[in-house]
């Protein structure tokens, strides 16, 4: 079961056990006091902005006539807005292609490191994890220059050996180039989550499997993969959230390739340009709110599908 559902599911039945265990603890007011600072800020900085955006999304501002209440009109507009729909479709496509590649790589690396079969495991683990410490801004700038046709080394090598090198910043390559940047940044992070989970599998399980004559591949498939389920769910959920709100990488590559990445290339980029370029605050709030909703729906769909498949 996934880490997140696990915790929320156990919440209802927990108090009974807990009370029994705590025995003579006085209830007192201390608990709420410890929780209060976080919850107050959570209300102010998490729920209030969401509420305010929801409120703004119900209005429209016109030069003549000022701000008027329009109900769900903005949502109707957004759901028919080709710019918004294309942005969402593009990040959905990105999610469907990039996330499986990234997670499969992270899984393979974690299994390889955990197998105990390779040399320099520590160096390799750290080296693959290091990109996570690099800001996405720097990562995108570096890859952007590496991709570049003028002084990127790939183009230089291609010219030197007279081999045609594709223009990675062209329209047909851009999504793949973005996927490469994001994969570079986050494979290591996901690998560490999976590797950490692998390290907690009890050794007796491997011994039992080995006694039964299972080889390394068989152990990986039948013992390690099932045990990795919660960790894989966690990485998958983080990836849903990450890819649907894709912004930094396309925003930065936009300066290098303005003709390829327009202001509505991803849904989030569209929301940004609505709020800050065209000053359509109400519509920007609508788009942000809808995008958040899309992400929550996809996240829960992923969770429910995974749990149902496990149950059957």
């Amino acid at each position: 079961m996934s880490a997140i559902t696990a915790a929320s599911r156990e919440a209802p039945r927990r108090p009974v056990e807990r009370r029994r265990r705590l025995g003579g603890v006085r209830p007192g007011a201390a608990g709420p006091l410890f929780v209060a600072p976080f919850m107050v800020l959570f209300l102010l900085l998490f729920l209030a902005p969401l509420g305010y955006a929801a409120y703004l999304s119900l209005f429209q501002h016109k030069l003549i006539g000022g701000t008027t209440f329009v109900g769900l009109q903005n949502y109707v507009t957004a759901l028919k807005d080709p710019l918004f729909l294309h942005g969402v479709a593009r990040v959905a496509l990105f999610f469907l292609i990039q996330v499986p590649v990234m997670l499969v790589l992270a899984l393979l690396f974690a299994l390889a490191l955990d197998s105990g079969l390779m040399r320099f495991a520590r160096v390799v683990r750290l080296g693959i994890f290091v990109p996570y410490a690099v800001p996405s801004v720097v990562a995108t700038l570096m890859w952007g220059y590496l991709y570049g046709p003028s002084f990127g080394p790939f183009a230089q090598l291609g010219r030197h050996f007279h081999v045609p090198v594709p223009n990675f910043l062209s329209d047909s390559w851009m999504l793949a180039s973005l996927a490469n940047v994001v994969t570079w940044e986050f494979v290591g992070y996901n690998m560490i989550i999976l590797y950490a989970a692998l390290r907690t599998i009890p050794g007796e399980l491997y011994e039992a499997a080995a006694v039964d004559g299972a080889g390394a591949w068989r152990i990986a498939w039948s013992v390690k993969l099932p045990a990795l389920r919660p960790a894989l769910m966690l990485t998958l959920l983080f990836s849903v959230i990450g890819s649907f709100q894709l912004f930094n990488e396309p925003k930065l590559l936009q300066t290098i390739a303005p003709n390829v990445i327009d202001s509505a290339y991803t849904a989030n980029l569209y929301g940004y340009s609505l709020a800050f370029t065209s000053q359509q605050v109400n519509y920007a709030a609508t788009v942000s709110f809808l995008l958040g909703l899309v992400i929550v729906i996809v996240s829960y769909t992923v969770l429910i599908t995974a749990n149902r498949r496990r149950a059957s």
């Binding site: 919440a11 959570f42 959230i241 709100q245 942000s288 958040g292």
Partner: peptide, 21 residues
């Protein structure tokens, strides 16, 4: 559970509403 549910809410989708507020 309210806070747990918030893990799913993307920070970037929250950023524009936070800016407006």
């Amino acid at each position: 559970n309210l806070v747990l549910g918030a893990i799913m809410v993307p920070t970037t989708a929250l950023a524009i509403p936070t800016y407006l507020l």
